[in-house]
Amino acid sequence: MPMSIKREGFAAILHDRLIPIGTVLLAIFALWYVFTVVLNAPFERDQAERAGVEISTSELISKTMAQKRPILPAPHQVAVEIWETTVEKKITSKRSLIYHTWVTLSSTLLGFALGTGLGILLAVGIVHSKVLDKSLMPWIITSQTIPILAIAPMVIVVLNAIGISGLLPKAIISMYLSFFPVAVGMVKGLRSPEVMHLDLMRTYNANRSQVFWKLRWPASVPFLFTSMKVAVAISLVGAIVGELPTGASAGLGARLLSGSYYGQTIQIWSALIAAAVLAALLVMVIDLIGRSVTRRMGVVA
């Protein structure tokens, strides 16, 4: 195994983060361009053959990157589409990607908040009641092995049928997906105080709620943020999938669906990139909040 050289400060960031990650990203973009040419070339060759003209290689390559409905759009095509639909369109416009992202984001956040609340409540109940623990916990664990997302269409349609539509049905799916990781993580977190600490609380003659607020709750905060990172990512997935079955008119999922109906690959890719950026941002925000909270609580990172 090669000896690793210890670097510090900026050099460490440069050599351990920027250069390797940058290289890999560059490689991904290069591969993307290669695949663009390879996948889109048959169509152009076919076109040229039908028109009865010879096509030079350089012409072929430039044409594969400027198709209207390419099999794989080139990165710069996606970038142009994203620029046009975010900066050049009004936010209120139905064609604005920001508008669609906002629709998805709002149901994601609502579902995430509901799911986190429900997860915490369940975990508190499970930690404090032996019956709940023994009867509910096995089901919570089993339910994680079930493809819950499969019921998304049914929830949407059924809630629509009884007159609940718009934000709430999607948020319910997000909630349903996101409360499992929070519940499981919080049960672990609330049980994480050591026996010694619990005994200490006993010698202080602390009652249950004091033990909870002064010991269990603070001890569970790192677990809470770890599971919230999982939960926010999964609730975004829930919101996107929740937009699929209703033939929804707005949201990133609706963009994906309409893109796939009309073969608008560039639109699909730009919606995908928007979803990816959104997911990364959400996870990052939770991570930052988690770090600052644990630092204030005196945890040495």
Partner: peptide, 15 residues
Amino acid sequence: AALPIVGMAPIMVMW
């Protein structure tokens, strides 16, 4: 691993 990869589904169906 944290991204909504299911979104790739329409592209895979096209390909």
